[in-house]
């Protein structure tokens, strides 16, 4: 969980200002390099050029269209990946035979980079939207399985014993004991899934050309050696990731506020 986002005393404006300090310093350094003929001047772009590219992308409507498509892909993949991940992770945690069968497969498969699958996914599913959703889903699937499994498995034994004492049905055991105690882990998993789904969406758009997403625009910018466009895309991707992260972190903090932790 991105604990650093939790407040501890300082006012919100002050915190935001502090957080912007480092990025701002970097931007200034960058701009200086671009304008004052530093060592790599022609390879940097000035802030003005980036602003120009942003205006250009905004006015042509490219930015919004691309952004919307990328978000749609990310959410679609996230949905499929985390739902199947939740189901598979729960089945593995609760049913031992399933655990035995799937554990070696899961741990072997998740060590293969998604990019390594691309040739085979391209071969089997084409280079269209389906392939993209598969890659994004996979990236969300792996952490969802892992954290669901660990969350459900990591229930303290004494809690389960108490449950036995109260003669809870299996369903009640799940709903009243396992699920609440797995929640922190599920949230960590969700945070990871969201992060990876977003990264994978951009990554796959950089490599699969169909549709029209931020990654496509970025790749096109790279092909044209338009670094200003690339920088705009990186900024939008980064800010979106940041915002999604903040959202999930807030949600999880809200949901887990009964936990006695330092912050």
């Amino acid at each position: 969980m991105s604990a650093a986002l939790r407040s501890y005393g300082a006012g919100l404006p002050a915190r935001i200002a502090l957080g912007l300090l480092v990025p701002l310093a970097l931007i200034l350094l960058w701009d200086h390099q671009a304008r004052h003929g530093g060592e790599h001047a022609f390879a940097f772009v000035s802030a003005a050029q980036v602003a120009g590219a942003l205006r250009e992308l905004w006015q042509s409507g490219d930015l919004l269209t691309a952004y919307g498509n990328s978000l749609r892909n990310a959410f679609g993949g996230l949905f499929w990946g985390s739902v199947t991940g939740l189901a598979v992770g729960s089945a593995m945690a609760l049913l031992r035979p399933v655990d035995w069968v799937l554990t070696p497969l899961y741990h072997g498969l998740r060590q293969v980079p998604l990019l390594g699958w691309l040739p085979l996914i391209g071969l089997w599913f084409g280079s269209g939207d389906l392939s993209k959703v598969i890659v994004v889903s996979l990236s969300a699937f792996y952490p969802a399985v892992l954290y669901t499994y660990e969350g459900l498995k990591g229930v303290e034994a004494r809690m389960l014993e108490v449950g036995q004492l109260y003669r809870l049905t299996p369903w009640q055991t799940f709903w009243r004991i396992r699920w609440p105690s797995a929640l922190p882990s599920l949230f960590t998993g969700l945070l990871q899934s969201v992060a990876f789904a977003w990264i994978a969406t951009i990554g796959v758009e950089l490599l699969f050309p169909t549709g029209f997403g931020l990654g496509t625009v970025m790749q096109h910018g790279q092909l044209q050696a338009r670094l200003d466009i690339v920088v705009v895309c990186i900024a939008v991707v980064g800010l979106t990731g940041f915002a999604i992260n903040l959202l999930v972190a807030r949600l999880s903090r809200h949901a887990l506020r009964w936990r006695p932790v330092r912050t």
């Binding site: 391209g122 071969l123 084409g126 050309p209 790749q219 092909l223």
Partner: peptide, 21 residues
């Protein structure tokens, strides 16, 4: 018309031909 990327067009088209897609 199936779009392919300029960067990895060759392999993608090969994969498409092989799968008769």
């Amino acid at each position: 018309i199936e779009p392919v990327s300029p960067a990895v067009g060759g392999p993608q088209i090969n994969e498409g031909f092989a799968a008769k897609r």
